[in-house]
């Protein structure tokens, strides 16, 4: 239940098995690896391709393969695949999906502050917003590796472009692997509450879960792992009983991130509901230290979450 693993290891292990059975699956990397990738690249030499440090060509070659019906995984560091190759993603995947079924799965490793000590070039605080802006692209922001494992078959069967936002560090499971989770819904109610509900994504779901467990209050928690094309009606229904919703994301707020998605839903709810957005303000982080320390500096620590929840309960 508490096995600690990286998302990419879980995903790559499972994908390696699928590549054995399906000769049309290609795995492209922009010279980025992991121990779990070693098995895949040694086993499937013809279908594992290192395009070099060339994210634009990574997406373009992936597009060409997908145009011929292949299932493609394009693998790179999150800020580089999502922003260095943004126009390639826009024109060749988002726009071209109006004409073709293109199963390109862009795996960005290093969500949020995963690469804590590497500074703003490696921090990835914009990807949710920039990807959500593009039509025809799914955004998957999992909170644990069990979800990633479940997503493998989904990614093969659903033949359109997707952006997979993987955390760079190993974390314990949130979901039980045997759990019958309806992944298509795009979110999961981890616990129900009275007046306040936290909606979190990615790594912040872990921090939110710890914060909620540490206080004596009945607070709801929803893990949102699809940030586009989720079951909107089901989510509205899950949120409609709350007075306050707190969104928590490791990304810039007041852009087009998780907060924007939830704000859009609140606008469709029959009653007024207060929204508190927790995330990064308009500022890059140059400070050094652990991810938790950086969260303390930027108002995203477990303590900050507890304090924010308490203000909504005590009012």
């Amino acid at each position: 239940m508490t096995a600690i693993k990286t998302m990419r290891d879980a995903f790559l292990d499972g994908l390696c098995d699928r590549m054995r059975d399906d000769g049309s699956i290609f795995f492209l990397s922009a010279d980025f690896g992991s121990p779990a990738l070693d098995k895949l690249r040694l086993t499937y030499k013809g279908r594992f391709i290192n395009v070099g440090i060339a994210e634009q060509n990574l997406i373009n070659v992936a597009t060409g393969l997908a145009l011929e019906g292949c299932t493609v995984y394009a693998y790179a560091i999150a800020p580089f695949i999502s922003m260095r190759a943004y126009e390639q993603i826009r024109n060749n995947l988002s726009v071209m999906s109006e004409f073709y079924s293109l199963n390109v799965n862009m795996i960005g490793v290093g969500a949020g502050l995963s690469y804590d000590v590497s500074g703003p070039t490696h921090h990835c605080l914009e990807d949710i917003s920039v990807m959500r802006t593009l039509p025809n692209i799914d955004v998957f922001s999992p909170s644990d590796w069990a979800l990633c494992d479940k997503y493998i078959d989904y990614s093969i069967e659903n033949r359109h472009p997707k952006y997979l936002r993987f955390d760079g560090k190993p974390h314990p499971m949130i979901y039980d692997k045997s759990m019958n989770l309806d992944i298509k819904k795009g979110f999961h109610v981890l616990q129900k509450g009275d007046k306040t509900c936290v909606v979190a994504t990615g790594y912040m779901t872990h921090t939110a879960l710890k914060a909620i467990k540490s206080i004596d209050a009945c607070v709801g928690l929803i893990d949102m792992f699809f940030l586009s094309r989720y079951d909107e009606q089901a989510l509205i229904s899950a949120l409609s009983s709350y007075e306050t919703i707190i969104t928590i994301e490791e990304g810039f707020i007041d852009k087009a991130g998780l907060d924007s998605a939830v704000s859009h839903l609140i606008g469709k709810m029959p009653h007024d509901c207060k929204l508190i957005r927790m995330g990064f303000k308009d500022k890059y982080v140059f400070d050094l230290g652990s991810r938790d320390y950086l969260h303390e500096l930027t108002g995203l620590s477990q303590t900050d979450i507890i304090k924010t929840i308490q203000t909504t309960i005590e009012k």
Binding site: N57, N60, G64, L65
Partner: peptide, 16 residues
């Protein structure tokens, strides 16, 4: 954009 996309197409055709 065209040449990179074409390279992917060429790779897929060769693989098949």
């Amino acid at each position: 954009h065209g040449l990179g996309v074409a390279s992917g197409v060429a790779l897929a055709l060769r693989n098949a």
